[in-house]
C-alpha cells in the first residue's frame, strides 16, 4: 500500500514538471516583438517610431485575430498618437475599439479605452463629455478594477475644470492613497491636489505637494510633468508674494519647454 502511495506521489510530482507548453505562432511572436520594441521607443520618447511599431504589431494581431493584442495595440496606438498631437486619430482608434461589435474585448481594455476617451475630451475642454466617459470607464471596471486610482485622478481633473476645489481635493487625496504603488499616477494625484490647494489659496501646502511631485517626475524623466510642477510652483510663489522665486521657476519651466521634448 505504502509503495503504491509513493509511486502515486512520484507521478504527481512528475506531472508538475510536465507542464503543457502553450503554442505560440511565429506571427504572434513577431507581433510581441514589435510591441516590445514600441514600448522601448515610447520610453525613450521616440514617439513616431513607437507609433510605427505599434501599427505593425496591430496589423499582425488583426491578421491572426489575436483579440487581446488588437485591444492592447489599439490602446497603445491611441495613446502615442495623442502624445504626437494627433488627437482626432486617437479618438477614432478608441471609437473603433469601443464600438467593436464583431470581437469581444476584455472589460479592462474597454475601461481603459473609455478612460483615454475621457482624457481626450478633458483635453478638448469638454468636461461634461469627459465625465460621461469616466463614468463609463468605472462601469467597465466594476469587477477587479486596477484603474480606480487613475479614475479618481481624471475625476479630480474634471472637478478642477469645474472650479470645484473641494471635490478635486477629496478625489485627489483618495487618488494619492490608491496610487501609492504607481509613481506616475501618485505624482499626478499630488499635482492635482496642489492645484486644488492653490485654488483654495493654500500656497504653502501646495508647494510642499509640488516638491514631492517634482522629485517623482524627475525620477521618471517626464519633461512635460516637470514643467507643470515648476509652473504651478511659480504660481504658488506669486501667491506668497515671492515674485523673484516665481520668476526663477518660470524661467526653469521655459527652458524645459524650449527643448520641445515631451
Amino acid at each position: 500500500m505504502r509503495s503504491v502511495v509513493s509511486i502515486l506521489c512520484g507521478l504527481v510530482l512528475l506531472a508538475g514538471c510536465g507542464e503543457v507548453e502553450v503554442l505560440r505562432s511565429a506571427r504572434l511572436e513577431q507581433a510581441t516583438e514589435f510591441n516590445q520594441r514600441a514600448q522601448r521607443a515610447f520610453q525613450r520618447g521616440e514617439y513616431q517610431a513607437a507609433a510605427t511599431l505599434y501599427e505593425q504589431a496591430l496589423q499582425i494581431d488583426v491578421a491572426i485575430e489575436n483579440v487581446n493584442g488588437i485591444a492592447i495595440n489599439t490602446l497603445n496606438l491611441a495613446r502615442v498618437n495623442n502624445v504626437l498631437g494627433r488627437s482626432a486619430l486617437a479618438q477614432r482608434l478608441l471609437d473603433q475599439l469601443l464600438e467593436d461589435k464583431a470581437l469581444h474585448h476584455a472589460p479592462a481594455h474597454l475601461a481603459e479605452a473609455a478612460l483615454q476617451k475621457a482624457l481626450l475630451r478633458l483635453q478638448a475642454n469638454d468636461a461634461a463629455d469627459a465625465a460621461l466617459w469616466v463614468d463609463r470607464a468605472a462601469v467597465y471596471c466594476e469587477s477587479d478594477c486596477r484603474m480606480s486610482g487613475v479614475i479618481d485622478n481624471v475625476r479630480a481633473g474634471i472637478a478642477l475644470r469645474a472650479n470645484d476645489a473641494d471635490k478635486a481635493l477629496q478625489l485627489s487625496e483618495r487618488a494619492v492613497s490608491a496610487n501609492s504603488g504607481v509613481p506616475i499616477e501618485h505624482a499626478n494625484a499630488l499635482r492635482l491636489m496642489a492645484s486644488a490647494r492653490l485654488m483654495k489659496k493654500e500656497a504653502e501646502v501646495a508647494l510642499r505637494l509640488l516638491e514631492e511631485a517634482l522629485v517623482i517626475d524627475k525620477s521618471l524623466g517626464l519633461p512635460e510633468k516637470i514643467r507643470q510642477d515648476l509652473l504651478l510652483s511659480a504660481q504658488a510663489y506669486e501667491m506668497l508674494g515671492k515674485n523673484e522665486q516665481a520668476a526663477q521657476y518660470r524661467d526653469r519651466a521655459a527652458r524645459i519647454a524650449a527643448t520641445a521634448l515631451k
Binding site: 516590445q36 494581431d61 492592447i72 497603445n76 482624457l119 475642454n125 487613475v150 478642477l160 475644470r161 506616475i184
Partner: peptide
C-alpha cells in the same frame, strides 16, 4: 529556456499595454 528545470526563469514575453496617464495639463496653469 524550454527545459523544465529552467523554464520558470524565462517567462514567455507578452504584448504590453502602456499605462494610462490620468493627468491633463490645464490650458493656462
Amino acid at each position: 529556456k524550454k527545459s523544465w528545470l529552467l523554464n520558470s526563469l524565462f517567462t514567455e514575453p507578452e504584448e504590453q499595454i502602456l499605462p494610462v496617464d490620468g493627468y491633463v495639463a490645464p490650458t493656462q496653469p
